[in-house]
């Protein structure tokens, strides 16, 4: 156990002494700051800025929405009418409970939780390099001639990658919180998030809501990073691991879309990677459930890891 901690410490030392790591994390913060500027100049933050007569605004909005709803209902488009109903009910809830719609710091943090995808990209780059990089430079030889079994060396690398993901996510959260606060004020920190379930508006703790947002986005992160790690361990080639992983990450949904007519598409990783479809949205194939997707993800996860470990332990090191 002690030895394992030492190994992880080693891997961390190697990650955090490389320039590229800081370039990536710096880039992420630059993107967040740029987002702060954009959101105050005509972005979504601006139009939602609270003013004193938010009550009249919401009431007006609701009247308009009611009319649109009637128009739609006569045409019988169910999906859109549900969306509008949700908006009306949320507005009513705000009026009843005196909760002004404030964008503020939480609005910014929630909106920029999409940057978890950027974090995924960076973690994929780290995962791709952490095994293949040692082969590229030849340092793998001096690493594996120590009294430590190969699977432990690989495990320490995997843990270090996940730790890096954790650090980057925390940094993303802190950066969006600080930038959001500076650009949109830190008012309304106790504001709840208004969720919508079975036709009822519910109050959800804002931090919990953001955590859930991150967690859903991390399913993608974990799967793609594990995939990149596998390619890295199997092909021992940095570029290949980054390339294939990013290619799949960006074309995965397209692929599922193209194949959506086949029933077996539901066994494809990318059809299961977005779990938010089970809370609001529609799954790729009718009849898919959260449990089904979690099981498919678990199978992929185990297979990726088995391949990584098997190949890393068995293959000759002849660099």
């Amino acid at each position: 156990m002690r030895r394992m901690l030492n190994l992880i410490q080693n891997e961390n030392m190697k990650i955090y002494h490389q320039m590229s790591t800081y370039i990536m994390l710096g880039l992420m913060i630059v993107v967040v700051i740029a987002g702060g500027f954009i959101s105050t100049n005509g972005g979504p933050g601006q139009q939602a800025t609270t003013n004193s007569d938010w009550r009249t605004e919401l009431t007006e909005q609701n009247t308009n929405l009611q009319e649109t709803l009637k128009g739609i209902q006569s045409q019988g488009i169910a999906v859109e009418s549900a969306q509008i109903e949700k908006l009306i009910k949320t507005n009513n809830y705000r009026l009843e409970h005196n909760l002004p719609p404030e964008y503020g710091v939480w609005g910014f943090v929630t909106e920029f939780s999409v940057l978890v995808d950027l974090v995924s990209l960076f973690v994929i780059i780290i995962a791709a390099g952490i095994v293949a990089g040692e082969f590229n430079t030849g340092t793998i030889k001096l690493l594996l001639i120590r009294p430590i079994k190969r699977w432990k060396v690989l495990l320490s690398k995997y843990i270090a990658v996940l730790w890096f993901a954790f650090v980057a996510l925390i940094l993303l959260f802190v950066a969006t919180f600080v930038v959001g606060g500076i650009f949109h004020s830190f008012n309304g920190l106790n504001q709840p998030y208004l969720g919508y379930k079975n036709g009822n508006v519910t109050e959800i703790n804002m931090l919990w809501h953001i955590f859930i947002n991150y967690a859903y986005a991390c399913v993608n992160l974990l799967m793609m990073v594990t995939f990149a790690f596998m390619i890295s361990a199997v092909f021992r080639n940095n570029t290949l691991a980054v390339g294939i992983s990013l290619f799949l990450m960006f074309t995965g949904n397209l692929l599922v879309g193209l194949l959506s007519n086949y029933s077996w598409v539901k066994y494809i990783l990318f059809a299961n990677i977005n779990l938010t479809v089970y809370t609001d949205g529609t799954p790729v194939v009718k009849g898919m459930t959260m449990t089904f997707s979690l099981m498919v993800l678990a199978v992929y996860f185990i297979v990726f890891n088995l391949i990584s470990w098997y190949v890393f332990m068995k293959r000759d090191v002849a660099t």
Binding site: H17, G138, T139, K141, L142, I145, R146, P147
Partner: peptide
Amino acid sequence: IAGMGGIVENPEMYKY
């Protein structure tokens, strides 16, 4: 392996 130490080919270290 605990009783061994050495270099295989070139002394490749972490340059950074």
